[in-house]
Nucleic acid binder design. Sequence first.
DNA 1: GCCCAGGTGGGTA
DNA 2: TACCCACATGGG
Length: 219
Amino acid sequence: MPLQRLYNRLFAHYGPQHWWPADTPFEVVVGAILTQNTNWLNVERAIANLRTADVLDSAAIHRLPTAELEALIRPSGFFRQKADRLQQFTCFLHNNFRGDLQQLFALPLPELRLLLLAQNGIGPETADSILLYAAGKPSFVIDAYTHRLLDRLGLAQKASYDSLRINFMQHLPDSTELYKEFHALIVHHAKEHCRKRRPLCRACPLLDGCPFGQDLIPG
DNA sequence: GCCCAGGTGGGTA
DNA sequence: TACCCACATGGG
């Protein structure tokens, strides 16, 4: 299976990634929203501000004055929009699940995914990141790096988000841990060998023995 | 100064 | 469906 082979190569080269970089499920949710079209380094600054202010939990975000939340997350960019999205989410959580993420995550995957997608500011990538890394559900994440990698390998140039996600999930074992590692490996690889507006790096481990990655084309 | 970064939602044709 | 745009900060 080509996707399995792609995963095997990445894993053999980089080893386990143990993602997502967060201490709690709620921190994953916050990071997933703050990282929208934003460099992760800036997200870390914003999260550090929230931690220092001791408001890195749902109840605190919920009751924090919006202007204060905006000031704390300012380094992550789009701070007005993201402060609003964070508080809309905590409001939804408090109104429907007593502010308890685990109660929300107890819903079955398909239902939970639709519910997340119905929230303002939570699109497919953010929803799948929350499902996979916060809720521990096997929902594959397709991000800009995944699109770019498949594009560089000559695959799926104009495939939709959902079709790519379904493709990954149908050709891989139904495993949360595998999905986590695979996505994390794609990000790790992309940061080294798959930069925007640049050709695939010659040192790319995926190209070793297959100059154009042809043997990785999915069947 | 320029491009880029782990998107989303609203608008238009 | 397919583009276009606003949203905003900080690094290279």
